[in-house]
Design a binder for these strands. Structure first.
Length: 498
RNA sequence: GGGCCGUUAGCUCAGUGGUAGAGCAGUUGGCUUUUAACCAAUUGGUCGAUGGUUCGAAUCCAUCACGGCCCA
């Protein structure tokens, strides 16, 4: 197997520091099982700090609170060692006189990074820090690789991403980011479940990749002898479920798009998509506003979000503005008449440097002008509405103006965070839109959509009037954790092999 | 894909053409209620890779790899 061959060739680097620790491990192996798994802790570092941190030295001695903890040695200072567990840090005190000679000698060989147990009463030092005065201790796991500098930590971005386990050991801010990520997803999930939304899982491997305009990854099914695609969106499956009667449905999971990497793009990323029958895009905007406000309050304890030096207030009502009006507002020199005229709008787009194609209609031209001149300026939370039908192949046409759809995108800090619309539930209109997409695909646009006959069949059974939305979870987490790069909010971001 | 910047000890970083350095970590010894613990001694380097210029290259030049930032 070629894969195995490669694995064998990936020899980890060794150095003298590791050799010294291997020697210590060998010495332990000669005495006992070097990787015991019998110790059970009863306490956690931060909970002890919370429970006992406010008590003074004398109170603690009188209390005689016994604690039993486990964790990684993060620092050694004099007779103290700092242990870190999943909740935080606490010191332990090593009084060698309390231990048999053999154990006292072994403790001297313990290194920063080793994982130990510690049991004993909790006391407080003269400087006011809690410590566990160890009466029993044992090495649970020997660490063979030295940790980064205890003071500077690990700052090398590349190693932080490639060896996230080291980053998590060393960087409290990184642990915090992923804790917030987890809480945000829980909060969003709870919010929707309380509103009777049902969580589902739909296929990641699809025969016809649909629901978005993007290039898919291709994989191969051996038994069926056919190519399949990693999904670019779950949308068409979720709407099939609404046809089936799951009138409020959502999925939080990965999408895959075969695109470049940037501080805002990873080939696999997490989206939440939700669909609600008997609702329209305005209901979705209301829901989004309530949900994000709730999530900010629950997770961060405030609705004011600080991101890269800017402040975004999720407590105030979000601005709502149409694509058309936003272009006029941000470009005082452009008139409504020009923007409505194919020739004049095209001239504006060309002047902006857009490489206009013959196949484009006015809607596509308007969106290009919007993206060039408005998008990045949408700083405070803003819904942009009424996207042209031409660029919205799955969205319902507006009743008053079939040139545009009942659709919105949501922007914060100049970045798109969400996309939602009243769903196109007219099967004949949808079939025509698919045909238009296929024509564009034939014309060379490899991001255009496929014709999905089964999806049309589902619509022909009847999709109730429905609205739906997708929110990019990673970008939302970036915002909530003040992270400049999407890689900071992905535990294992995509990296080129070394 | 383009531009700029980076890659030196396990980690964080100095080092602009003339014997590769510091702090932390490690090792040995001391001290033992410390807070980046402290004191003394000490080990540790294909300077990202390849090629070139030069008497001499971590340093100058070229190409490549990986990463960061900005742009597409």
């Amino acid at each position: 197997m070629s894969e195995n061959h490669n694995e064998v060739e990936q020899v980890q680097e060794e150095n003298r520091l590791i050799a010294e620790r291997r020697a210590k491990l060998s010495a332990i192996r000669e005495k006992r099982n070097a990787f015991p798994n019998h110790f059970r802790r009863e306490d956690y570092a931060q909970r002890l700090q919370d429970e006992l941190g406010a008590k003074d030295k004398e109170e603690l001695e009188a209390l005689g609170r016994q604690a039993s903890i486990a964790g990684r040695i993060m620092a050694k200072r004099g007779p103290f060692m700092v242990l870190q567990d999943m909740t935080g840090r606490i010191q332990v005190y090593v009084d060698k006189k309390q231990f048999p000679q053999e154990l006292a000698d072994e403790i001297k060989t313990w290194d920063i990074g080793d994982i130990i147990s510690a049991t004993g009463p909790v006391h407080k030092s003269g400087k006011g820090d809690l410590y566990v005065n160890m009466t029993e201790t044992s090495l649970l796991t020997k660490s063979l690789r030295p940790l980064p500098d205890k003071f500077h930590g690990l700052t090398d971005q590349e190693i932080r991403y490639r060896q996230r386990y080291v980053d998590l050991i060393m960087n409290e801010s990184s642990r915090r980011t992923f804790a917030i990520r987890s809480k945000m997803i829980s909060s969003i999930r709870n919010f929707l479940q309380q509103k009777d939304f049902v969580e589902v899982e739909t296929p990641m491997m699809q025969v016809i990749p649909g629901g978005a305009s993007a290039r898919p990854f291709v994989t191969h099914h051996n038994a069926l002898s056919m190519d399949m695609y990693l999904r670019i969106a779950p949308e068409l499956y979720l709407k099939r479920l609404v046809v089936g009667g799951i009138e409020r449905v959502f999925e939080i999971n990965r999408n895959f798009r075969n695109e470049g990497l940037s501080t805002r793009h990873n080939p696999e990323f997490t989206m939440i998509e939700f669909y609600q029958a008997y609702a329209d895009y305005k209901d979705m905007m209301d829901l989004t506003e309530a949900m994000l406000r709730n999530t900010a309050q629950e997770v961060l304890g405030t609705t004011v979000i600080n991101y890269q030096g800017s402040e975004y207030d999720f407590g105030k009502p979000f601005t709502r503005l149409s694509v058309f009006d936003s272009v006029l507002q941000y470009n005082p020199e452009i008139t409504a008449e020009q923007l409505s005229d194919m020739a004049q709008a095209t001239a504006i787009a060309v002047k902006l440097g857009v490489k206009v194609k013959d196949t484009w209609g006015l809607g596509k031209i308007q969106i290009e002008i919007f993206e060039e001149t408005v998008e990045h300026k949408l700083d405070q939370p803003t819904f942009i509405t009424e996207y042209p039908t031409e660029v919205s192949p799955l969205a319902r046409r507006s009743d008053g103006n079939p040139f545009v759809t009942d659709r919105f995108e949501f922007f914060v800090g100049g970045r798109e965070l969400a996309n939602g619309f009243s769903e196109l539930n007219d099967p004949e209109d949808q079939a025509e839109r698919f045909m238009a997409q296929v024509a564009e695909k034939d014309g060379g646009d490899d991001e255009a959509m496929h014709y999905d006959a089964d999806y049309i069949a589902a619509l022909e059974y009847g999709l109730p009037p429905t609205a739906g939305e997708g929110i990019g979870i990673d970008r939302l987490v970036m915002l909530f954790t003040d992270s400049p790069s999407i890689r900071d909010v992905l535990l294992f971001p995509h990296m080129r092999p070394e």
